[in-house]
Design a protein around this nucleic acid. Structure first.
Length: 423
RNA sequence: GGAGACUUGUCCGAGUGGUUGAAGGAGCACGCCUGGAAAGUGUGUAUACCUCCAAAGGGUAUCGAGGGUUCGAAUCCCUCAGUCUCCGCCA
């Protein structure tokens, strides 16, 4: 959620930035300012009436203490008369506040100046490409065949247990998955991130805080009986650790990491994109989240990109880094880098990480602040990224490392996996 | 799941209808004291919004959350959430 004061003071800038994000409803800005004017006006009226009531009530107390009953009664009548207009104004005020909030929630975050102009994934900027695409042997196959061949993941039984898009990892497949998680977490911890195991289920306020609600309601699994949501990413519980908190400047930046399963309904997805491990309803992911001073957030974003990049390099996977264009970015993000690894047998890039700076978009909703040197509270910036999403890493790793003898396990994983090949 | 107790500021803790945004204490900050420190002592120490060019000042709201009663609610009533104790169930 954008800050009202910023919108009011930078109207033209906001409109220009929204155009870059391919946001059409530009009249919204005027509507917001109008609603805010109304709100201020109503609040002023309401405050005035309430102040009248408060002083009168105090007078009544004083009169009663002096035993002046009749005067007190007269005052009571006076205040009673005030009540109707107080109710009317505060009703209007509440309405206007709700309207304003509703309008503000429709505004996406503004893209950073560095974000390229563009509408679709075609317009994303390739920042760099790294690693050689391996030449596979003649009988090389996509990962969905490899997992069957080596008995690593069983989709049919996943369907039986739950439904399509739920995978049953098995034997060496399960262990490889666990090895990756362990390796990723250790790597993050070594870089100064604090590990958490958060709840995998969150309430409305948490899902609202990071921006999943109200807009993306259909993307999350909702448990109606308890009104709770399965997390679509660890970002949600982890960022919400500091919801409604003022973090002392000395404790910044906060660097957190967590492994969690992620649950996504993926309504509307179909076709070859969803084949095998490419897109599933439940997947494992190790996430990193940072909370920083506004002035440092872009430096932190670059650090996070470098951090994720070294992790992918350590697995010897060919990858490229994209800076998403305005039209392809998420609603809440000010700048996003996507990491894609090459899936050699499928001959396509698979997104395995998305690293974003949300600036104050989330902290404004969550009221995550710090105190500046003047003692004034300032919204902090939040950032997060995957390090990494497991299924597509697994897919790419299986496809790129397949040989006639079996699948070669990258060196860094061998201590965790306990073997150097799956044969 | 059943019964009961509880939820106040950074923390502890007082407060059962009337200048209580909230006693007292601790912590913290600044000053005095000191060669320096401790002790002592003085002052200050929430958040949001409105008013204002800004500052100062003023106003409003907030005592778990939401609603209600009342001229007036931290205090009374209702709903919900959480914490603790006992019972039940259970990995």
């Amino acid at each position: 959620m954008l800050q009202l004061a910023f919108i009011r003071n930078n109207k033209e800038k906001v409109v220009e930035a929204l155009k870059k994000k391919n946001f059409k409803d530009l009249e919204l800005i005027e509507k917001i300012i109008e609603a805010d004017d109304n709100r201020k006006n109503l609040q002023f009226q309401s405050d005035e009436k309430l102040a009248q009531r408060n002083t009168a009530s105090k007078d009544i107390g004083a009169l009663l203490a002096q035993g002046k009953k009749e005067e007190a009664e007269a005052k009571k009548q006076e205040v009673s008369a005030l009540k109707a207009s107080i109710d009317e104004i505060s009703g209007k005020l509440a309405e206007t506040e709700a309207l304003l909030e509703g309008l503000l929630l429709r505004l996406p975050n503004l893209p950073n100046d560095l974000v390229p102009t563009g509408l679709t994934a075609e317009d994303n900027e390739v920042v760099r490409t790294h690693g050689d695409i391996p030449k596979l042997y003649e009988g090389a196959v996509p990962h969905w065949d490899l997992i069957t061949k080596y008995d690593l993941v069983d989709f049919q039984t996943g369907v039986k247990i739950t439904g399509s898009g739920f995978a049953l990892y098995k034997g060496r497949g399960a262990k490889l998955q666990r090895a990756l998680i362990q390796y990723f977490l250790d790597y993050n911890i070594a870089a100064g991130y604090t590990e958490y195991v958060p709840p995998h289920v969150v309430n409305y306020a948490s899902a609202f805080g990071t921006g999943q609600l109200p807009d993306k309601e259909g993307q999350m699994y909702h448990m109606a009986l308890d009104d709770l949501y399965l997390i679509p990413t660890a970002e949600v519980p982890i960022t919400n650790i500091y919801r409604d908190e003022i973090i002392p400047a000395a404790e910044l930046p906060k660097k957190m990491t967590a492994y969690t399963p992620c649950f996504r309904r993926e309504a509307g997805s179909f076709g070859k994109d969803v084949r095998g491990l490419n897109r599933v309803h439940q997947f494992d992911k190790v996430e990193i989240v940072c909370i920083t001073h506004a002035a440092e957030s872009y430096a932190v974003l670059e650090q996070m990109v470098e951090h994720v990049e070294r992790l992918i390099q350590s697995l010897n996977l060919p990858y490229r880094i994209l800076r998403l264009c305005g039209g392809d970015m998420g609603f809440a993000s000010a700048m996003t880098y996507d990491f894609e690894v090459y899936s050699t047998a499928q001959e396509r890039w698979l997104e395995v990480s998305s690293v974003s700076n949300f600036e104050t978009f989330q902290t404004n909703r969550m009221k995550i602040r710090t105190k500046d040197e003047n003692g004034k509270s300032q919204l902090l910036h939040t950032l997060n990224g995957s390090s990494l999403a497991l299924p597509r890493i697994l897919a790419s790793l299986l496809e790129n490392n397949q040989t006639e003898k079996g699948i070669i396990i990258p060196e860094v994983l061998r201590p965790y996996f306990g073997a150097d090949i799956i044969s």
